[in-house]
Structures are given as structure tokens and as C-alpha cells.
């Protein structure tokens, strides 16, 4: 790996993880999951994740709402109406080493793996999108399905966006 690419990847990783943490905390969650990585990837300056989402007819704002709706619907299924008010965001700044859910770690590691095969090489948001597209269940998948996107469609869109091998 060239030094220039290594430095760029480190910047991307920092942006991606910091963004995921902010997404999680503003939704009242301490630990980011795959859905927060996906939302953070969509905001990366390389623009590839946002374009892959656009290919399947969605965007970060729609997915953010879908994540909240998925949780609200699950509670409604138990007879708990939490109302339209958004979850209270955590007020304290994140402290200590960053933690992520095991699934978010898996997505991150897979994205890094995919970035090594990409041409041009280097981690981009679309690699996170592809890794999320390989998930089968969990909040991210439920949120995607609620906006009419199957994970396989997201994976295909990510591959088309980045020229990844099928």
C-alpha cells in the first residue's frame, strides 16, 4: 500500500467511524451498528455511497427515518406507542475507546477487505455499502426492506458503482 493511499484511508476511516458514532449517539445509542456505518458512509466526501444508495432509489435521510420507524414499529407490535418524538440523543461526548457492535465491526472489516480489491485501490463509502448489502438480518436490513430495498439490490448497486467483481 502506498503511503499516500494509506494516509487517505486513515482519514476515511476516521471520518467513517466518527460519523457512525455521531449517528448512533444522536439516535440515543451508545454503540454504532451497521445502520450507523451506512449512514456515515453516505456522508463521506468521495460520494460513492450516496450514489449507490441513489441507484436503489433511497438516501441517508430516508434510511435514518426508516431506522427510527423500524424500532417504533417493533414497539408498536408490543402495544407500546412511543409517539412521533425522536429518541433523545445522548448528551455526553463519547469517552474512552470507540466501541462498535460486532456486526458493525464485521461490516467495517469486510469494507476494508473489499477496498483492497478495488480499482483504484482505497477505501470508499461504497465498500461499506457493499458490506452492508451482504448482511441478512438486523436493524440495517429491516430499515432497507422498509424502504423497499433488498440487501442484494444494495450489493448490486454498490458493485455497479465501484466496478467490484460480482
Amino acid at each position: 500500500m502506498g503511503l499516500v493511499r494509506a494516509v487517505r484511508d486513515i482519514r476515511t476511516i476516521k471520518r467513517l467511524l466518527t460519523g457512525a458514532e455521531q449517528e448512533a449517539r444522536s439516535a440515543g445509542e451508545e454503540v454504532p451498528g451497521p445502520e450507523h456505518l451506512l449512514l456515515s458512509a453516505a456522508a463521506l466526501p468521495d460520494g460513492t455511497a450516496a450514489r449507490a444508495l441513489a441507484r436503489v432509489g433511497t438516501d441517508a435521510a430516508a434510511l435514518r427515518s426508516a431506522v427510527a420507524a423500524v424500532h417504533a414499529d417493533a414497539l408498536a407490535g408490543l402495544g407500546l406507542e412511543t409517539g412521533p418524538a425522536p429518541a433523545t440523543s445522548l448528551a455526553a461526548p463519547a469517552a474512552g475507546p470507540m466501541r462498535t457492535s460486532p456486526q458493525a465491526q464485521q461490516v467495517f472489516q469486510r469494507a476494508v477487505e473489499l477496498s483492497g480489491r478495488a480499482s483504484p485501490a482505497g477505501l470508499r463509502g461504497v465498500h461499506v455499502v457493499a458490506a452492508v448489502g451482504e448482511l441478512e438480518r438486523g436493524t440495517a436490513v429491516r430499515a432497507l426492506r422498509s424502504v423497499g430495498v433488498e440487501p442484494e439490490q444494495l450489493l448490486a448497486a454498490a458493485r455497479a458503482e465501484d466496478g467490484l467483481p460480482a
Binding site: G28, V70, A74, L75, L80, A87, T88, R142
Partner: peptide, 21 residues
């Protein structure tokens, strides 16, 4: 189980929010 486990996730989030409040 998919719906039941999604409900567990949502309940955990709700419990954390209620606890902090």
C-alpha cells in the same frame, strides 16, 4: 423470531432511554 428479536432490540433501546431520563 425475526419480529420477536427486532422487538427485543427496540425494547433495549427504549429501556436505555428510560433509564437515562
Amino acid at each position: 423470531p425475526e419480529a420477536a428479536l427486532a422487538a427485543v432490540v427496540a425494547l433495549r433501546r427504549l429501556a436505555a432511554r428510560l433509564e437515562a431520563d
